[in-house]
Each structure stands twice: as structure tokens, then as C-alpha cells.
């Protein structure tokens, strides 16, 4: 039984497959996308809890992709990956609602922890909204 679903968005094929392989071993359901457009397509299909998103990609860049993800699925949490440490993309990401950022290359454990935290936050938000919905429904039975 998978814990939750993660989408890995990075133009580096090697990084993507390696990360997917390692996360899958830890019972996380993984999917990959090589660029922003593909990532958005995949997210539209649903079932993605957390996105691991490279800031620097050819085509639609990470920040732009993040903006779109948040527009499409506000509850989906995004962890930004900054390959070359750019302060601005770190802060910009946070301002656009990224959950956190990680610096490449990173170890598996901190990555796992960060993804789990992100998922926990997503779940909590979801629960809150559901509770509020139930309460509304009960107050106004149709």
C-alpha cells in the first residue's frame, strides 16, 4: 500500500529514474515528468499529492510550473529543487506557495522527510476542508 503519490519533475533523466526507484522502495508511488508541460498534464489527471520540482528546466521553468500547479491544484504541495543555488528562485518559490526547497544533490533521508512533511500538510488541509464541508452539509440538509 503506497503512502502517497509523488511526481518528480526534472529534465535530467538519470536523476528522475534514480529518485523514482529509491522512493518506490520506500512505498511512495512515483511518477516522472521531464518538463513543465508534461508535469501539468500529469497533475490534471489527478492523484498527485506532492510534486518534487526542479527550478531550472528548459522550456517552462520551475517557477512558472509552480505557479500553474498552484492554480490548478492549490492543495498539491510542491517541494522545489534548486540545482545551482539561486537565492531568488528559493524565495520566489516560497512566495508562490512552495512547501519548501531542497538543494541538489541531496541525500535520500532528508528528501523523504521533506516529502512526508509536505504530504502531511496537504492531508491536513484536505481534512479541514472536508470537515468544513460536512458541517455545512449538516447545517443545510438538502
Amino acid at each position: 500500500m503506497a503512502l502517497f503519490n509523488v511526481l518528480i519533475v526534472d529534465d535530467e533523466q538519470e536523476f528522475r529514474t534514480m529518485t523514482m526507484k529509491r522512493l518506490s522502495k520506500r512505498d511512495i508511488l512515483c511518477d516522472g515528468a521531464e518538463d513543465g508541460e508534461k508535469a501539468l498534464e500529469r497533475i490534471k489527471k489527478g492523484d498527485i499529492d506532492v510534486v518534487l520540482l526542479d527550478v531550472k528546466m528548459p522550456g517552462m521553468d520551475g517557477i512558472e510550473t509552480l505557479r500553474e500547479i498552484k492554480r490548478l491544484r492549490p492543495l498539491t504541495e510542491v517541494v522545489m529543487l534548486t540545482g545551482h543555488a539561486s537565492v531568488e528562485s528559493g524565495i520566489d518559490g516560497m512566495k508562490l506557495g512552495a512547501f519548501d526547497y531542497l538543494m541538489k544533490p541531496m541525500e535520500l533521508e532528508p528528501l523523504l522527510e521533506k516529502l512526508k512533511d509536505a504530504y502531511e500538510k496537504k492531508k491536513m488541509q484536505q481534512d479541514k476542508i472536508e470537515t468544513a464541508q460536512i458541517k455545512r452539509d449538516m447545517a443545510m440538509p438538502s
Partner: peptide, 8 residues
Amino acid sequence: SRSTAVMV
């Protein structure tokens, strides 16, 4: 990287 860490 440390500046980014502090700022974020």
C-alpha cells in the same frame, strides 16, 4: 547556499 537557507 547558506544565504538561501537563511533567507528561505
